[in-house]
Design a protein around this nucleic acid. Sequence first.
DNA 1: GCGACAG
DNA 2: ATCTTGTCGC
Length: 207
Amino acid sequence: MVRIDLSKARKAQLLLSSKAVKHDIIDKENIKVVAGVDVAFLKGIAIGAAVNLDYETLQLLEKKIFSTRIGVPYIPTYLAFREIGAMIGAVKKLERMPDIVIVDAHGMLHPRKAGEATHLGVVLRIPSIGVAKSMLVGKVDREGYIVYKGERLGYKLMEGVYISLGHGISLETAIEIIKRLCINNVPEPTRLAHIYATQEKKALMDI
DNA sequence: GCGACAG
DNA sequence: ATCTTGTCGC
């Protein structure tokens, strides 16, 4: 496990956030495939899982796994540097590139507006939305919006479901999409990706 | 300086 | 995130 150069990582995040976009770069009326990504850990291995769902029916279309060695430890606000390799590897294995990707972590609701969801969206040049289980920065206002440094960057859909702007999708559209995907108190793509990653991890344990 | 801190 | 069985409750 190599220690991360926080100075360089910080600069990378600032560059990434400068390239992130807060408005829709796709036609929301034309979303067909939505992906969910998650990562499970076993020893020194990160197991990335990516699943594609039909946006209309929420049915599973395909799923892929990409495992890699863990390079760095978990350091708050630098989560992406630990997981994104496995996540991107899994997404790239999908036969059909999804129209948008749902990441189970924050996006712009991050000290440098460069959380994992934003990081992945900018790197893959694909619209992304972050959905975290707890708050990292910001505060929820009377209407449910999460404000950070005077900017609305997210929305509290319910306890344990915090929408965080990722890349290429406006907050209003992101809220609309996540409301539609949230079935069991969690976005369906995220739930399936988590199950798949955990399943693969258990399979590796029997070896 | 102190405490908090996505997964 | 991960280490981990049974158990309380709808």
